[in-house]
């Protein structure tokens, strides 16, 4: 009887301890907190393929296109990464400038976000084709004006 009472008392005490000190009981659990954020990486290069190392970068948030939200400098490979404020969805503008050369990329964030894109540019084949067309037109002009008059 005495042993039974002791056992019940011990059980109640253990239960009470469990309720009073829940943290100790759960101390071996694991917890993961997360917030969703998307890092944007840009790579700035000249059209020769040379990276714009050390170029200055200006990031403009969609709600204020006139004041820079973030400024920074590209690394030697022309890379620059930033994490846009996820509450400001819309088109973020990233301007890169070095020695009077540069470009601006428009990056959609939030709805309609794209995985990768570029600020423009053509393939070598397109450039060659366009150059040939223009030179052909100019050569035509030259031939027109150099024709013998009838």
């Amino acid at each position: 009887m005495c042993i039974k009472r002791k056992l019940i008392t011990g059980l109640i005490f253990t239960l009470a301890l469990c309720l009073v000190l829940p943290m100790q009981v759960y101390a071996h659990g694991a917890r993961i907190e997360y917030t969703s954020s998307t890092e944007i990486e840009i790579v700035a290069k000249y059209d020769t393929g040379e990276p714009m190392g050390g170029a200055q970068v200006m990031v403009y948030a969609p709600d204020d296109p006139s004041t820079p939200w973030l400024t920074g400098v590209c690394d030697d490979e022309g890379r620059f990464t930033f994490v846009p404020d996820s509450t400001k969805s819309g088109t973020w503008d990233v301007q890169v400038r070095q020695a009077g050369h540069g470009d601006m990329a428009h990056i959609p964030v939030g709805e309609g976000a794209v995985v990768a894109g570029s600020s423009g540019g053509y393939s070598v084949l397109q450039i060659v084709l366009m150059a040939v067309c223009v030179v052909w037109g100019i050569a035509g002009t030259a031939l027109y004006f150099s024709r013998r008059r009838a």
Binding site: A131, V134, V135, I138, A139, A142
Partner: peptide, 19 residues
């Protein structure tokens, strides 16, 4: 009009040479 052909050719050279 006489110099337009050579002006045109040099314009083409100027256009392409920036590459």
């Amino acid at each position: 009009r006489e110099s337009i052909p050579q002006a045109a050719i040099l314009t083409a050279a100027f256009f392409v040479v920036s590459w």
